[in-house]
């Protein structure tokens, strides 16, 4: 059994469609803690101690957020800058996060084709997430491939529902340690482990 912590960041939650659905499915999974950052820190004043205690209690961390300007909404950057302290998260004595798994669960307006050498976004999603990857590495964590929902502005209800179910399955597998590390090697998105 692993404990999963979702660090959720959405500044205009009331207008969201995809993220709200993902949230709905995620909240139903046992063993998952859903930490709504903007709701806790509406003025971005983050309680560092609380956040560090949350991290210490969990084994897997997920940054769940819309993909704003090829990155996360600002509170996640604020969160990293404040919570990941020297000699706690990294540095010679920083072992608090060692061995924990981490990945991003994002929703993008563009389609998967757009995120390719020939598409208008030119690079794959994974490349844009490199700063997260490296941050995890420096904190001695395992960075997993992302969970991605594409075309959020045109997505059909049934596709969205399928994505929600897929996300729930993934979370459930993570909680119950049913993910085979060997299978992670060849995939670009975690979605691929649960084909629909």
């Amino acid at each position: 059994m692993s404990k999963v912590l979702i660090q959720f960041a959405h500044p205009t939650h009331s207008k969201s469609n995809v993220q709200k659905t993902l949230e709905k499915y995620a909240r139903k999974v046992k063993g998952v803690t859903f930490n709504d950052l903007y709701e806790h820190y509406p003025d971005l004043f983050i309680d560092v101690k609380r956040e560090q205690e949350l991290l210490a209690k969990h084994d897997i961390v997920i940054f769940q957020h819309p993909f704003y300007w090829y990155s996360s909404p600002p509170i996640l950057k604020q969160w990293q800058d404040l919570v990941l302290e020297y000699n706690w998260a990294y540095g010679p004595k920083g072992h608090a996060l060692k061995g924990k798994k981490i990945f991003n669960a994002v929703s993008c307006g563009g389609g998967r084709d757009a995120y390719s050498a020939s598409g208008y976004n030119r690079f794959p999603v994974g490349q844009y997430l490199l700063p997260f990857d490296q941050t995890a590495h420096l904190c001695r964590m395992d960075y997993l491939p992302p969970f991605v929902v594409h075309e959020t502005y045109t997505i059909e209800d049934y596709t969205l529902k399928a994505c929600g179910e897929q996300y729930a399955e993934l979370l459930d597998a993570l909680v119950n340690d049913r993910i085979d590390p060997a299978k992670l090697a060849g995939i670009e998105y975690l979605n691929e482990l649960f084909p629909h």
């Binding site: 205009t12 207008k15 969201s16 819309p66 976004n121």
Partner: peptide, 14 residues
Amino acid sequence: ALAGWDRKAETETA
């Protein structure tokens, strides 16, 4: 209050 965030859909939020 909430303009900007995800109003101009495709390009801004990619």
